[in-house]
């Protein structure tokens, strides 16, 4: 997973999403979100193949009745 978000990447994704951006937006967005993406990437989260979003509900509901 990339740990850096470049203005070029933001421009490409925005174009694919058909969301228009002003000339300086891509640089501003990259600056704003790069630290967050880098922090999550640095944790090197290693998920088992079988893990899906609904695994959250399974963990959460183990608590019912305890």
């Amino acid at each position: 997973m990339p740990d850096n978000i470049s203005p070029d990447r933001v421009t490409a994704v925005a174009a694919a999403a058909r969301v228009p951006l002003a000339p300086n937006d891509a640089a501003r967005i990259a600056r704003a979100v790069a630290p967050v993406a880098a922090r999550f990437a640095a944790a090197k989260v290693n998920l088992p193949l079988e893990t899906e979003p609904a695994s959250f509900v399974a963990v959460q509901r183990r608590e019912i009745g305890q």
Binding site: M1, A14, V19, A37, T51
Partner: peptide, 21 residues
């Protein structure tokens, strides 16, 4: 709202799948 354009689908889904663990 525009900031959300910057993350890839993989980044989003890894974060979401990590919620249970």
């Amino acid at each position: 709202l525009q900031n959300g354009l910057a993350y890839s689908a993989l980044e989003y889904l890894e974060a979401l799948r990590w919620r249970g663990p």
